[in-house]
Design a protein around this nucleic acid. Sequence first.
DNA 1: CTGAAAGCGCTTACAG
DNA 2: CTGAAAGCGCTTACAG
Lengths: 341, 341
Amino acid sequence: MTVSVQAVADRAGVSISTVSRALRGVPGISQTTRKRVRDAAVELGYVASPSASRLATGRTRTVAVVVPLLTKWFFAEVIAAAGRVLSREGYDVLLTELSTVELRAGFFASPRLHGRSDGALVVAMQLGSEELASLEAQGQVLALVGSESAGASSVRVEDRIGGRAAARHLINLGHERIAFVGLRAGPGSTLGGVPPAERLLGYREALAEAGFPSDPGLEHVVENTVDAGAAAMAALLTAEEPPTALVAASDEIAFGAMATLRGAGLSVPDDFSIVGYDNHELAGVVGLTTMDHGVAEQGRLAAEALVAALAGAPAAVGRIEPRLVVRGSTAPPRRLRAGSR
Amino acid sequence: MTVSVQAVADRAGVSISTVSRALRGVPGISQTTRKRVRDAAVELGYVASPSASRLATGRTRTVAVVVPLLTKWFFAEVIAAAGRVLSREGYDVLLTELSTVELRAGFFASPRLHGRSDGALVVAMQLGSEELASLEAQGQVLALVGSESAGASSVRVEDRIGGRAAARHLINLGHERIAFVGLRAGPGSTLGGVPPAERLLGYREALAEAGFPSDPGLEHVVENTVDAGAAAMAALLTAEEPPTALVAASDEIAFGAMATLRGAGLSVPDDFSIVGYDNHELAGVVGLTTMDHGVAEQGRLAAEALVAALAGAPAAVGRIEPRLVVRGSTAPPRRLRAGSR
DNA sequence: CTGAAAGCGCTTACAG
DNA sequence: CTGAAAGCGCTTACAG
């Protein structure tokens, strides 16, 4: 049924050792022999048994990609970008979604990756020290996106700078009452929460620099869903002195906020300005001005760092600086515009 | 470093055969022995080497999930749902994205899954007979979503019924000029194309039943992107006698169409009605009436059929009937509404 | 440059 | 119910 090294060896008239060496491209094999073996392998449709190679070498040449959720645009984008470099580099990708606290606990309670992958690319999960220790005890080389750990590769997004730039853009347009809706992990969520916090810090920084008084009533922290964004916007509209603009910590929050405004008969950006965060694939359609934090690039950089580390390179940390993408959801506030009624 | 069967055997005072049997739950082991072995394994933190088990048994207990694209909501949703049942059933999931024709050709040219997975769950790719043969030669048990093949499990979505229901809804509201924007694989795309065609057939069927003349000018076929949807809508608006409603073969097409209408100053649904297809996670925010074809369920059903087939059950074909989800993007045409100016 | 042999860590008839 | 031994299909020192 299945073609083994022995079959190739017979056909090429060499030993199995030679077949193994010839096919893996190790040096110390004559050109003619190598060619003969390769031809035989091709003719027979031979491909080494992964299980056998893995057992013999102790290396799996597979990377586990672990995410809290697969169904959010952000994660799919990161995984896709990472997966492309991993498979280009000859690694299999073992997909692991830890979408509930039970799943997460179970995953770290036993050495589930041991012998299955050589490394793990962990996306947007703040790993506890026991969790990190568990992964390391399982012999995993690590690459983190959205979190950091000494000795592990990671990609760091300058979210404070991003949050600051978003708020700055609105300030520059003339807005003075600017709200912020940030992200919080929901109950039962396995998402980490540090980067969003940095976005909030950047927002506060910009306001302070502009000399605006800090106003806790302008800051909301909600789950990362469209509905939560819609609800937060609604709450903001009930304030004594409502804001004229919003920095949303994600595009999904922004989408929800836009829906609420539309429902209230308010126009974006004529009556209200919004800056999102992500540059979601659908941000363009709705004309959302947003912070692009190179989502695909996060995945790519992490995968590249992991591949390098698996080849013996020291852990590396990548850096991404978010940049503003101006579309139609931001404009000067009504009071500053000529011709406004 | 790594704990082997031998270590567990020593600690439990039995042979390695007994350890293996006790841990895998095979019958013919005394309760006391089994417990002793299990305790020893836990104390030692032992977990069998996957490579070794795979080599010995010839089974990998992993399933390859192959998709044309990871970054579309549809695929992420299907994979997530499938992945949850697969890992619940103890299978590893090997992720394979074939996003270009080169990648696809390379994948099928060599037995890339051989010895890596016991089965493959293939999403939305019309596999050619050579491709199917390749997979079978690699010993893969198959489950297909969005395509069918004799002997393979699959889940069939009644897209003709769905397309018909969408058009019907508009007809019932009183529309008489109803356009259709369908899906086509773009250049270099690896997407299959049969299900979308069925949606078109259903649409035509509904129009014929209503006695409307068929009008090719009302039918467009484009790539499945928001931009293509926007462009198609724009083209429709230039017709001599423009339609008053649209059946979009995907929600992304519908999103694009809505953007075009908004840009043209037309109101949905006051001036124009739209029915989408998918029930995309963001369909709710924009108030899109759409056909829900149980995307997550497609993944779940396929995975369940695959797991069953891997356990020896005969191939099964699941069936999903799309259902209309009415939101705010559809209404009677202007001419039928009282109080319209 | 090439081959014989040991070893990777399991599973599974075969005996008892 | 339990154990000794062969075998799964590779890789890799070790000799030559």
